[in-house]
Design a protein around this nucleic acid. Structure first.
Lengths: 246, 246
DNA sequence: CGGCGTTTTGAGTGCTTTCAAGACCGGTGG
DNA sequence: CCACCGGTCTTGAAAGCACTCAAAACGCCG
């Protein structure tokens, strides 16, 4: 079923590197932990590598595990009875996926790229949270940030016209990269037009038309497949918040 | 400016009741605390009562305080440059308002009804969170729940037609009441058509037309101002998730 | 080179918005 | 007691933006 269950950490990877890799970077869960505590966490965690399009878990599965994304990009989606889907968020390296107060996961988690994840059984994580208050504090911090980002997304979807939503999405890619401290000129954009549409509450055709319009205005380039370069960020920002001649 | 700053707890209210009232109910922050700890929390907290339409804080204000809603209903809103606003959520008794990892509040908080709030300075709360891990754990729990609810709202706003959104909103009122353990036949609905529209990403006219349609189909009644009675919950549910013959 | 999934582009439809006016309701003052 | 007033809600008609349906172009991979 779940490809994760069949996988072991790739050979040649020392498990004591797990959390120093996923956590002590800029944004990870383990950011506030010292070396000794990291060792204990590492002892509890597995590392798994999965190819693009893998399903990490599905909405309704028992929420027995929590993941920290070490590299790669994931999308979280909810499926409606009529088959339409809503992307509730994208996740980047350092983000935690699957921590919930419910018995079941409230959404699907699917990889857009190949990825490596740090995997913890929920009971073990709870034990660690009890032992290390700074870990729980960090998790609370990440959760509050995620909540604010989701509220921001609600504004985008609820109150902005189509092109403004696409502009806001592009700027959010920029922001996500900034947080990870990268500096390349072009952005990775592994999501398809359909993914973006499902994130923004639009159809893929409308997203495509917006990209075409931006390209024609010289606001962006797509130098290669799944890469985008923003050429006029002020214009995109203005369009995004409706201050463009409005 | 802010009416809160001018207010003292009403006379005749003993402050040692603060958290036993706001917290030890079904949903409050202080739910997991024992009596001794509650006393310490109470010593740090104020209680404030405010009339309907009060602004508790505004987006951009320094986030120096955290509130727990004891009774009444609040709305949280984000304002766009073009004047449109998005309601990012409603808050009910037991909910925490204003806990953020940022320096400033990311939204306005405004009361729809008269309300009483438990007010804590942020540094004092942080001190308490450090002292009582179960308090921090509870806050994390509330935050994760709120995140899931906001994601659910994203699905509603992004992927459902107008009437389905209104139906989903009505059912969410029902759910909020259920969590508070109430059992009356009619629901309190202190929000205006405009509030509901700003929550659902619609116009107030569209919301009004949906209510009219539901009334004509016999799915609800409004026995008095700011009350609703849902007469056909299965019909509303089916419409809400699109399983109504669509 | 053929096949499949993704993206682009076009034309027409439709749902929601916009604009406008009137009804309703509670509160206030004559 | 009733008229007036502001805010909210309802209803109608027209316009617009995004959707739907459709087909062709593109690009990747075998």
């Amino acid at each position: 079923m779940n490809p994760l269950d069949a996988l072991r950490p790739p050979p040649g990877i020392r498990t004591d590197e797990v959390c120093s890799t996923c956590g002590s970077r800029v944004a990870g869960l383990c950011k506030p932990m010292d070396a000794a505590s990291l060792d204990e966490i590492s002892a509890e965690a597995d590392r798994v590598s999965l190819p693009a399009r893998s399903v990490v878990f599905r909405e309704g599965d028992q929420a027995t595990r929590v993941y920290s994304l070490m590299n790669g990009i994931a999308k979280l989606t909810r499926l409606l009875p009529d088959g339409k889907q809503q992307v509730v968020g994208f996740r980047y390296p350092g983000d935690v996926i699957g921590y919930t107060s419910r018995r079941d996961y409230p959404f699907d988690a699917e990889l857009l790229t190949g990825a490596t994840l740090c995997r913890l059984d929920r009971p073990k994580l709870d034990k660690l949270l009890g032992r290390y208050p700074q870990l729980e504090h960090r998790l609370l911090d990440l959760c509050v940030q995620e909540l604010t980002a989701t509220q921001e997304q609600l504004v985008t979807v609820g109150r902005r016209p189509a092109e403004a939503r696409v502009a806001a999405f592009l700027l959010s890619l920029l922001e996500a990269r900034r947080r990870r401290g990268k500096v390349e000129r072009t952005l990775d954009m592994p999501m398809t037009r359909a993914d973006i549409a499902d994130f923004l509450g639009l159809t893929l055709e409308t997203v495509s038309r917006s990209f075409t319009a931006f390209r024609k205005r010289g606001w962006l380039r797509e130098p290669e497949h799944q890469k985008v370069e923003l050429l006029d960020i002020p214009a995109l920002s203005a369009l995004s918040d409706g201050t463009d001649e409005g």
